[in-house]
Design a protein around this nucleic acid. Structure first.
Lengths: 141, 141
DNA sequence: TTACTTGCAAACGTTTTGCACGATT
DNA sequence: AATCGTGCAAAACGTTTGCAAGTAA
């Protein structure tokens, strides 16, 4: 099992959740994936190591992981059902539209822009999304 | 009926679609709205001017308007069912999280950032989303 | 032992489809 | 007149909920 999965299980436990076979299976899948996964993807992959798991449990576990900030929902032009492992701190997403591979990047300099927009619009901005979509090295061929 | 609605109806017609009471009602609602609207919102508002309209027709008309680039789906942390009138050319969204009011802005300088990210990641970027979420002047109180 | 977690079945809200009738061109 | 569009009902889809049985602590 990958490094992050261990930490995730610990986080679940210290937050009062029990460690069960189903939860271990779900955590193992998403924590170890570099691609975005839908609940159904997770369900199908988790069944390999934990055959009796139910889709409902996948949904419930994903909810908890999202609440703990360990995963986040990824919105795309093609749909918004997939999740990716989350990073600490504010990062932006780069997503391969063919295979679903995700990368995070930082280094946007939006403070000035946000200030300008606030002034012109009268809005107060609380959050922003910056996402890049394209094809990864492997999928470009 | 507002100015944009006229142009939208023309666009529908020149693309081979017939002008019907239902379509006029749907176009009138979204073309004239500064807020994002779900299909159900459109349905309820359209019933005022066209009582017999069905929700299915709203869905079908929204599909066509989206294909023609006249409206676009707006993704938010709270959901992705709403649509907004689209602008010509590439613009970014500013959305009020309380009332759904949308504004467009330009002036992002992301070319350099995109170039850096492409170089570091090996991805080829084809599209980007930049969205700001906050509260508009009216909703800040 | 207790409370939490599970999988199943059923319910739910949203969106899509099949179809016969109606309307636009 | 021919084709396209409509509304209804039903189906499909992803997700959530109720519940009795099972399991971690």
């Amino acid at each position: 099992m990958s490094q992050p999965a261990e930490g995730w299980l610990e986080r679940l436990q210290t937050n009062g959740y029990r460690l069960t076979g189903s939860r271990r299976a779900v955590v193992k899948i998403i924590a170890g994936s570099s691609k975005i996964l839908t609940p159904l993807d997770v369900f199908e992959q988790a069944r390999a190591s934990h055959p009796g798991i139910g889709l409902v449990t996948v949904y419930r576990t994903l909810d908890k992981l999202e609440q703990l900030g360990l995963i986040q929902r990824v919105h795309q032009p093609s749909g918004c059902q997939a999740f990716a492992a989350a990073l600490n701190g504010h990062q932006h997403l780069l997503i391969c539209q063919r295979c679903g591979k995700v990368r995070y990047f930082s280094g946007d300099h939006l403070d000035g822009l946000v200030g300008n927009v606030e002034e012109e619009s009268g809005f107060r901005v609380h959050e922003h999304w910056l996402q890049l979509f394209g094809l990864c090295n492997d999928c470009r061929n």
